[in-house]
Simulated scan of single mutants.
Amino acid sequence: MNTLVPYAEILSQGDEIVSGEIVDSNSAWLSQRLVDLGFLIARHTAVGDRLEDLVSVLQEISRRADCCICTGGLGPTRDDLTAEAVGQAFSLPLKLDPAALLMIEERFQKRKQRMPESNRKQALLPKGARRLDNHWGTAPGFYLTAEGCHFYFLPGVPREMEAMFSEYVEKQLPYLFSLPRSMRVVIHVNGMGESKIEALLKDLVLPPQARLGFHAMPQNIRLKLTFPSEFEVPDQEAIVSEICRRLGKAVTKIETNLVGVQEESER
C-alpha cells in the first residue's frame, strides 16, 4: 500500500451493472469525491450477484486497499448478498440489529403499509459492524474494518448513496487518514491529437511526485497534472509553463484546483 497517499477502491454489486443494463454512475461520482479528499483511486470493480465472487473480491480488496466504498446488494431480495458475503469473507456472523429493524418498520408504517417479512433481512448486519442509518430509503448501510481496510457499504440507489456518503463517509474519512491535499492543473488543448501532444512532451522529465494524465474529450484534449500540496509553487509553474511553451497556441485554458478551490484562466 502507498504510505503517503491512501489507496481507495470502489466495488459495485449487481447483475444489472455487469450486464450493462444500467450505467454505474455511482463509481464516477464516488471517484470524484474521494480524489477531492486526497485519495488515489486504485480500482473500480463490478461483481454480479454471485456469493462466491463477492466473497473473493472482498478478501482481495482487504489485502491491498486502505479504504473501499461498496454500493448495492443491501435490499430485501435473494440476490442482495452484500451482508452475507461480508460475513463469509471475514468470518463475521450476521446479527439482527433491533434499531435497524425498527427504522425499517417505521418507514413502512409511514406509508401505512405492513413490512414484508423479507425486509427483515436488511436489519441483519455482520458482527462488529457499525450501522449507517438510511434516512433517505429502506436499506441501512454499515461500516467495518478488515485486514486494515476501512469498508463502507452503501445502497446502490444513487440518491440514497450520495446522501449517506455525504452524511457519514465524507465526514469520517479525514479522521481515519492523513489525507494530503493535492494541486491539480488541467491544461485544455484544442486542435491537436493525443499522439502529437505525446510526441511534443516525449522528453519532458517530471519529478516523481508529479503525475501527468491525458483525458480525450469530444471537443479537446485535457492534460491533468497533479502535484502534492507541498510541491513548490515556482517549480509547479515552471513545469506548466514548459508544457504550454511546447504546445503553443493549441493551449486554450488552464484550470487550477485545490480541494474545491478553483481558479481558471483563458488563454
Rank of each mutant, 00 (worst) to 15 (best):
M1E: 07
T3M: 05
P6H: 11
P6F: 10
A8I: 08
E9G: 15
S12F: 09
V23F: 00
V23M: 01
D24F: 01
S27Y: 03
L30V: 08
R33N: 13
D36A: 15
F39Y: 09
F39C: 06
A46W: 02
G48Q: 06
L51F: 10
L58A: 00
L58W: 00
C68M: 04
G73M: 06
T77G: 01
T77V: 02
R78S: 14
D80S: 06
L81E: 04
A85Y: 04
Q88S: 06
S91W: 07
L92C: 08
P93Q: 02
L94I: 08
K95P: 00
P98I: 03
P98K: 02
I104Y: 03
E106R: 15
R107A: 07
F108T: 03
R111V: 03
K112R: 07
Q113V: 05
M115N: 03
E117N: 05
R120T: 14
L124E: 12
G128Q: 01
G137K: 09
T138H: 12
A139R: 13
G141V: 11
Y143G: 07
L144E: 01
L144H: 06
C149D: 01
F151D: 10
R159A: 15
E160Y: 03
F165H: 11
E167A: 15
Y168S: 11
V169T: 06
K171N: 03
L176N: 02
F177R: 00
R184H: 05
H188D: 12
H188W: 10
V189Q: 03
M192V: 05
S195P: 03
E198S: 14
A199L: 02
L200S: 13
L200Q: 10
A210E: 13
A216G: 08
M217E: 14
T226G: 07
P228R: 06
S229G: 14
D235Y: 14
D235G: 07
E237I: 13
L247Y: 10
V251Y: 07
E255K: 12
T256K: 13
V259P: 00
V261T: 08
E263R: 15
S265L: 10
